[in-house]
């Protein structure tokens, strides 16, 4: 599904990713762990197409397509979703409005008919119930005045609605209490299947108790230095990154 080969990325002439490789097959959950500043969030942003990052070398293919040439919105429509570490506030824009526009942009991309208001509202209510999110959240402006937990839950809610093929969760667990963490994890787990893949970026092994990954990668200084199964996360929790 996703193949990243020898990826070099720089920002302001500073190289952050230094020859990164990762392959994600359909249905797999990969976790990327690593110390601060190792380039985890950069990878997430580059996959989503953030323009401040310059890809100087390497390839990214997603479902056979060269991703680097695609605009962020094209990547989104192709099925890449980024759950942001810091979801941005957009005052005056109702959460439901952004999401309906987003879903319909994606449907249009695939030559499907846009969802009518009523149909969308029904879908949104269903997903909210599943996630235990208050319906009031739909009417509020996007992320505006949301608590940290609400923002993260909103990301997962959006993911549920947009049904991406590859979701990248960038430290979605940070700042969450245990109940919110469970909600986020349930949101991911309920979507797992043979077609959908996930990259879960986290500092802590805690989240991986709830979202059990197929693979764990350790990222240090812009490269993946070790890969393994879920037991690798446990090992990191005990020993830290000092050994790398």
């Amino acid at each position: 599904m996703l193949e990243v080969r020898n990826l070099h990325v720089q920002v302001d002439d500073k190289e952050i990713l230094k020859g990164l490789n990762i392959t994600v097959a359909p249905g797999e959950v990969h976790s990327i762990m690593g110390p601060n500043g190792s380039g985890k969030s950069t990878l997430a942003q580059v996959l989503a197409g953030k323009e401040t990052y310059e890809v100087t070398e390497g390839e990214i293919t997603f479902q056979g397509k060269d991703l680097i040439d695609l605009e962020p919105e094209e990547r989104a429509c192709e099925g890449i979703f980024l759950a942001f570490q810091y979801p941005v506030e957009i005052p005056g824009v109702a959460n439901t409005y952004l999401l309906r526009e987003a879903l319909n942009a994606k449907r249009e991309y695939w030559n499907e008919k846009p969802l009518k208001h009523v149909e969308f509202a029904k879908l949104a209510r269903e997903k909210m119930r599943e996630l235990g999110i208050d319906e009031d959240l739909l009417k509020r402006s996007v992320n505006t005045g949301f608590s940290g937990g609400e923002k993260k839950r909103n990301e997962v809610f959006q993911m549920q609605i947009l049904e991406p093929r590859l979701s990248v969760l960038d430290e979605t667990d940070s700042g969450l209490d245990i109940d919110a963490l469970k909600i986020v994890a349930n949101g991911v787990n309920s979507m797992r299947g043979t077609e959908r893949s996930f990259i879960v970026i986290t500092h802590y092994q805690r989240l991986l108790n709830y979202i059990v990954p197929d693979f764990v990668h350790v990222m240090v200084d812009g490269k993946i230095v070790k890969s393994g199964g879920k037991e690798l996360a446990q090992e990191l929790e005990e020993k830290g990154y000092a050994g790398f």
């Binding site: 197409g49 605009e71 957009i90 999401l99 526009e101 987003a102 942009a105 959006q158």
Partner: peptide
Amino acid sequence: GEDQMFYCRQRGLSA
């Protein structure tokens, strides 16, 4: 905000 723009585009909206 570039960040607001990117957020919306990441969700599928054109610039």
